[in-house]
Amino acid sequence: MHLTPTAAGVFPIAPTPFAADGSLDWASAERLFAWYDGLGADGTTVLGIMGEAPKLEPEESLRIVKVAVAGMPGKPVIVGVSAPGFAAMRRLARDAMEAGAAAVMIAPPPSLRTDDQITGYYGQAIEAIGADIPFVIQDYPLTLSVIMTPAVIRRIVMDNPSCVMLKHEDWPGLEKISALRRFEADGSLRHISILTGNGGLFLDFEMERGADGAMTGYAFPEMLIDTVALQKAGRRDDAHDLFDAHLPLLRYEQQPGAGLAVRKYTLMRRGILASDAQRKPGAGLTPAAKAEVDYLLARLARKDARAAL
């Protein structure tokens, strides 16, 4: 299976489950991907920033890919392969595709500054991994500090036929989505899928600007799935009503440095992960923060029964 530019829907970004001692919790990993599949997710993404990819050994990374492919049969698995050097990127990309992945995701290194540096980097990366592998551009300037204008994204897409998707995480980024869809309308950009991130914080309006869905790690992916479906069905108010009910927890998850801890804690409370542990270095939540998350979950349960724990 290869990812195509028509991909749409919700691709939850999977956290990597760890036990308290830092070892990988494979039982929780299997449960996580089976859960995504059962919810109706359209695919998943592994080894992203939320997946603590730099903390994994190569053998662990590849096994995560295999568990995801097995847990979501017939659905595309996207694999983050960003690395300091192209040799490691190529090895993981080729091994992941051989293991059944549908595409890879490449983020620009923070050292890139000019438009030519950015487009040149992607050209070199595709030369390294091979033009036969579909790839996703990860545009996340808040974390990566690399600014990609719509024109730069257009250059990358048009220069590299194997580019099939943009993971859009600019903030604010609504106008960027609109600009890219205008390029498509005037014929200067071929169609690619646009899935959005940022914990889903702007998904309600991103769908209205032309996004095809979400690729993010919010601990209630079923809300993302429902919001996307409602927007596609033209039920704007229903989509916003559901989204607004989750907004306090979405906001809490978006705290810099604490988002992954909040998500893992919530997934543990939901019975998906056995532990909310992160592999070191990584910080957990204080008792006060856990109490605040519990409070938000209790409030959310009044409007969405799926939050009743």
Rank of each mutant, 00 (worst) to 15 (best):
P73I: 01
N160L: 15
G100D: 05
P84T: 07
P150M: 11
V77C: 11
R181Q: 15
L39Q: 13
V77W: 01
V69Y: 01
L112M: 05
G22M: 08
M158I: 08
V67H: 00
A219G: 08
G38H: 04
F202D: 09
R263L: 10
A128W: 06
D294K: 05
P108G: 03
M97R: 03
R155D: 11
A41M: 07
D237P: 00
V136T: 11
G234K: 05
L92N: 01
A261F: 07
I13W: 00
E52Y: 09
G199S: 14
L144C: 08
S162W: 05
G257T: 09
M97T: 03
T149I: 07
A305R: 10
P84C: 05
R270K: 15
F183C: 07
L32S: 01
H2C: 07
A125Y: 03
D237E: 13
E253Y: 14
L285G: 04
A53N: 13
A229H: 03
L267Y: 13
L195D: 07
V228I: 03
D244G: 01
L180W: 10
L47P: 10
K280N: 07
V146M: 14
P17H: 12
G200F: 08
A298I: 06
D276V: 01
T119V: 15
A291W: 02
L296M: 05
D115P: 02
L166G: 06
R31C: 06
A102L: 03
H246Y: 12
E208K: 14
V65H: 11
R31W: 01
M89T: 02
S193N: 10
V104E: 02
A107W: 00
E57C: 01
I78E: 00
A103Y: 01
G120F: 12
F135W: 03
D37L: 00
S82M: 07
D186Y: 08
Y36I: 08
M89V: 04
T114E: 09
E292S: 04
V262K: 08
I194C: 12
L224V: 00
Y295S: 14
A70K: 14
V228E: 07
R63P: 01
A128E: 11
L201C: 11
T114W: 06
A96M: 04
Q254I: 02
A283F: 13
D212R: 05
R90M: 09
T216A: 13
G80Y: 03
F11T: 08
W171R: 14
L166N: 08
L247W: 11
A258W: 04
I137G: 06
F11R: 09
K75W: 03
A34V: 03
S188Y: 09
I272V: 15
Q254F: 06
I106K: 02
V136S: 05
K176Q: 14
A128N: 03
K55I: 01
L189I: 07
L180Y: 10
A14T: 14
V46S: 12
R90I: 00
L112K: 02
A283C: 13
A70E: 15
L144P: 00
I194D: 10
M148F: 13
M89R: 01
A53Y: 12
E127V: 06
L144K: 04
D116Q: 09
D115H: 09
V146I: 06
P221Q: 10
A298Q: 14
V146K: 15
A261D: 03
D115V: 01
A14N: 10
K303Q: 14
D237A: 15
P17W: 10
S23Y: 06
A8T: 11
P110D: 02
L273W: 12
E253S: 11
P54V: 15
G123I: 05
L224H: 15
